[in-house]
């Protein structure tokens, strides 16, 4: 054999040896568990629990929704519920609620969707976060089982409509509005004048109707008579412990416990997969952007008058 060929064969032998040593070295010093939560994991498949997150104000989005930024609006919650409904692997759903409520129609739509899922024998477990009051509780009442943390703010069963009265301010500034209307109630809840007794009665009628619907739906969802709920359905908020005492919830527990309860009720094994909406860092990034967008919306809501003229199932301190 040529000397040059011997040199090359020796180099290749050295390279092979170093590669084998490297593989053995890496395997021996390998950590047992992944360091990062985003490490490669086995793909999830088979029957499991779906997670739906209901966060922030419950209302239909009026702005255009970008394809990149996920919206936390009612539409996205309904879309997620529909997605889980179509998935044959989903045997139970945990509805994670962190919401002070929202508009009547949007809340009723979510409640209706949850009831439809319940009729399809999909187990629904509500898990309450910081706050699940008013419309947030309304949505929870559609579930088979409700769990809240000890300090969760819940309850606030009731309806509210707020209209600012700026008459005094306008008079001070010398501003008068010209209103031409087809009927006497066309500018109902106008901010530029006092509300008349007839108008108040009209709004009150709508509020009472929505309130009765709220009571009826909670009674239906919780399977308890209206008379048992009514004493505490005066708009009061309460913590998880009190809500348990009044039978507005079934159990005190965390999100993890809610997942375990969902598995148990759906007769799934303890290690059944959880299909969560937020599953990869990219999604989380966009969810964060969405959160920023929502915060912006909240600010607008506090300083503007845009959304004042609505009936709401909302806890509004």
């Amino acid at each position: 054999m040529d000397k040059s060929r011997k040199i090359i064969v020796s180099i290749l032998a050295l390279l092979t040896l170093s590669a084998v040593l490297a593989i053995v070295d890496i395997t021996l010093t390998m950590k047992k568990k992944a360091r990062s939560p985003y490490g490669i994991t086995a793909p999830k498949f088979g029957p499991g629990v779906g997670v739906v997150r209901l966060s922030g104000a419950i209302e239909f989005s009026s702005d255009s929704v970008s394809p990149l930024v996920k919206s936390g609006s009612t539409e996205s919650v309904l879309r997620r519920l529909e997605e889980l409904e179509k998935d044959s692997n989903i045997k139970a759903i945990v509805l994670r609620i962190n919401s002070p409520g929202g508009t009547v129609a949007a809340t009723q739509e979510i409640y209706g969707k949850l009831q439809a899922l319940r009729k399809k024998n999909i187990i629904l477990v509500a898990s309450m976060g910081d706050v699940a009051a008013s419309g947030g509780y309304y949505a929870a009442s559609a579930c088979n089982h409700i769990m809240a943390n000890h300090g969760t703010i819940t309850g606030s069963i009731g309806v509210i409509a707020v209209s600012p009265n700026l008459k005094g301010l306008f008079e001070k500034l010398g501003i008068r509005m010209n209103v031409i209307k087809s009927g006497k109630y066309k500018d109902l809840l106008s901010s530029f004048r006092e509300i008349s007794p007839e108008e108040r009665a009209l709004v009150q009628e709508m509020i009472d109707s929505s309130y009765n619907k709220f009571l009826k739906d909670v009674s239906l969802g919780r399977n308890i008579p209206i008379s048992d709920i009514q004493p505490y359905a005066d708009g009061r908020v309460m913590n998880g412990e009190t809500a348990l005492k009044y039978k507005l919830i079934d159990e005190i527990g965390t999100f993890e416990m809610a997942l375990a309860r969902a598995r148990e009720k759906a007769k799934l094994p303890e290690d059944a997969p959880v299909y969560d909406d937020v599953k990869n860092p990219l999604d989380q990034f966009f969810m964060t952007l969405d959160g920023m967008a929502q915060k912006g919306g909240g600010l607008e809501r506090r300083v503007g008058l845009r959304d004042y003229y609505m009936l709401e199932y909302r806890y509004q301190p």
Binding site: L15, A19, A22, I23, D25, I26, T27, T29, M30, K31, K33, A34, R35, G39, I40
Partner: peptide, 25 residues
């Protein structure tokens, strides 16, 4: 091909590896 394998082995040697190493190689 070996250049790709050796590159990955070298980079893997420098960090604390997990089971993910087998996907890499």
């Amino acid at each position: 091909l070996f250049s790709a394998l050796f590159e990955i082995l070298t980079v893997s040697l420098l960090g604390a590896e997990t089971q993910y190493f087998y996907y890499k190689v």
